[in-house]
Amino acid sequence: MTDKRKLLDSLENFRKAFDKLDAALNIPRDRELVLEGTIQRFETIVELVWKTLQRALKFEGIHPKTPRETMKQGFSAGWLSGEIAWQELLDNRNSSSHEYLDESFLDNYYDDIVGFHAPIKELLEFLENRFNEQA
């Protein structure tokens, strides 16, 4: 499979996962299961964000290896803004498995997810516009 095909497949998966997260955020968060399901969808998005960004950078000749390095290279390329928010995205994802059973964590983490929604959508649309046009 070519690097371009891998990138387009990642973008397609990213879009599907984002749409599922978007749908979850439109469900009233009045039940624990809604909170947990939304968090699970968000965790999938975080993985797809950095892996898709990594593939896009690789396609452009930049080869980051880790999630943090990928984010840094995304800033250097001018594809990301708000560096602190993107680092928090990775930090939140890393801490979620440790704090998952704490009741206050669910509400706070859900609020964080709402805050990350717009920058993730912006990145997705940027990557889709940049790379789907080249297909």
Rank of each mutant, 00 (worst) to 15 (best):
L80V: 06
N94L: 07
S104H: 06
L106M: 07
L25R: 10
E32Y: 06
A56G: 14
N132W: 14
Q54P: 04
D91M: 12
R41G: 04
F126L: 14
Q73S: 13
I84L: 13
F59T: 08
F59P: 02
K58F: 03
E43Y: 00
P119R: 01
L25W: 12
I62V: 15
L25E: 10
D19F: 13
N13G: 04
T66R: 01
I113W: 09
A135I: 15
F116K: 00
I27S: 05
Q54Y: 01
L8A: 13
K51N: 10
R55L: 11
I120G: 06
S97G: 02
F126N: 06
I62W: 07
D107R: 00
I45R: 07
L127H: 06
H98I: 07
D107I: 08
A56L: 12
D111N: 12
R31V: 10
S95Y: 12
E128S: 11
L57V: 02
Y109M: 05
I113G: 03
K51I: 00
R29G: 14
E12G: 10
R31P: 02
G74H: 10
W79Q: 12
Y100V: 10
G78K: 05
W86M: 05
K65D: 09
V49I: 03
F131V: 14
V114N: 02
K20P: 08
F131C: 06
N129F: 01
D19H: 14
F126A: 06
P64N: 13
R31Q: 11
I45Q: 10
L89G: 11
D111Y: 12
T44G: 08
A85T: 11
I39K: 04
T52V: 08
Q87F: 13
G115K: 11
R15N: 10
F131S: 00
G37Q: 13
E103N: 10
A135N: 15
R15M: 09
K65A: 05
S10W: 04
F116C: 01
L106N: 13
F105M: 02
R15G: 05
A24P: 03
K65F: 05
E69T: 08
R5C: 04
I39V: 11
T2E: 14
R130C: 10
F42L: 00
S81M: 03
E69H: 00
F42A: 00
E83I: 07
L25F: 05
Q40T: 12
I62D: 04
L106R: 14
F59N: 11
D19T: 15
A17R: 09
D111M: 01
L7T: 14
D112E: 15
L8T: 11
D112M: 08
F75T: 09
N92T: 05
Y110K: 10
G78F: 07
A23R: 04
L21N: 01
